[in-house]
């Protein structure tokens, strides 16, 4: 806490303004939930009546079912690949003292800094040549690239707080590097790896811009279908989809919180 250098009257204004801004940040997300239970097909708020019809539409329409399945396959694929490749890279960059280390790290976090429209047009261009447009494989690969920086940062942080000497001991007792990593290091950085995996899943599941460019029709993920629906018409099914996405998005922070608590407990 910092000693205040604001007189009480001004302080009240500050608190009021902060309250309003925080409301501005949270309210829009929350308003989607009651909208999804509306019985009307207009976007009036509060809804004139309540029903489950938009969830019914979502669950019965082939368009939304296909998109959900593409999204899940894409996000799971990207999660597995990004976690494996990202953890490998994080470990390699952590252990090595090679001169290329900094340059490689910079390269791998680059997808985080390049505007997504550029990743989108670049991938579109590359996939046109490779024949990967409108494929789940294509979506998995590009989302793996987009998620790797998150894995690199998360697992890298885990490795920095881990004592590498333990692995040295295992190796000096005859385990090779892979065995030493899998049996000694990995169990101790597992929370970082799980966090990284969850983060990659969410990043891939939520990605819109690249999906809009490189996928359409039957091979389009949920975000692409939502975007084109939003652009063309006002369909309250979006509110139902959005509510499900909000529910999905609250799971990882909760799991992470639980993991963090367990981590604290397991420490002496």
């Amino acid at each position: 806490m910092m000693e205040s250098h604001v007189d009480p009257k001004r302080r009240l204004w500050l608190f009021a303004l902060t309250g309003l801004v925080l409301l501005f940040l949270v309210a829009p997300t929350l308003i989607v939930i009651p909208m999804s239970f509306s019985s009307s097909n207009s976007l009036t708020f509060p809804p004139p009546g309540y029903s489950l019809r938009w969830y019914e539409t979502f669950l019965t329409s082939e368009k939304w079912q296909l998109a959900t399945s593409v999204s899940l396959r894409m996000a799971l694929g990207a999660m597995v690949l990004a976690t494996v490749f990202g953890t490998m890279a994080a470990y390699g960059l952590h252990v090595t003292r090679h001169a290329l280390r900094g340059a490689l790290y910079g390269t791998l976090v680059l997808p985080l800094m390049v505007p997504s429209i550029l990743i989108a047009i670049g991938t579109f261009f590359a996939y046109a040549a490779l024949g990967l447009l409108n494929t789940v494989t294509g979506l998995v690969l590009v989302n793996t690239m987009i998620a790797i920086p998150f894995v690199l940062v998360t697992v890298g942080a885990g490795l920095r707080s881990y004592d590498m000497n333990q692995e040295m001991v295992a190796r000096s007792l005859g385990a090779n590097r892979l065995v030493a990593f899998l049996t000694v290091t990995l169990p101790q950085i597992k929370y970082s790896v799980i966090s990284a995996a969850l983060l990659s899943f969410i990043v891939a599941f939520d990605e819109v811009v690249v999906a809009v460019f490189i996928s359409k029709g039957e091979k389009a993920p949920l975000t692409q279908v939502m975007f084109s629906t939003l652009r063309d018409e006002v369909d309250p099914t979006i509110a139902a989809v959005s509510t499900l996405l909000i529910a999905l998005a609250t799971i990882p922070p909760l799991v992470l919180q639980l993991l963090a608590n367990r981590k604290k407990e397991s420490r002496p």
């Binding site: 829009p28 989607v32 708020f45 939520d206 819109v208 939003l230 006002v234 979006i238 959005s242």
Partner: peptide, 13 residues
């Protein structure tokens, strides 16, 4: 943590 599309949709409403 919330999808960008969800938030954009909320503002549309």
């Amino acid at each position: 943590w919330t999808s960008l599309l969800v938030r954009t949709y909320a503002w549309l409403v």
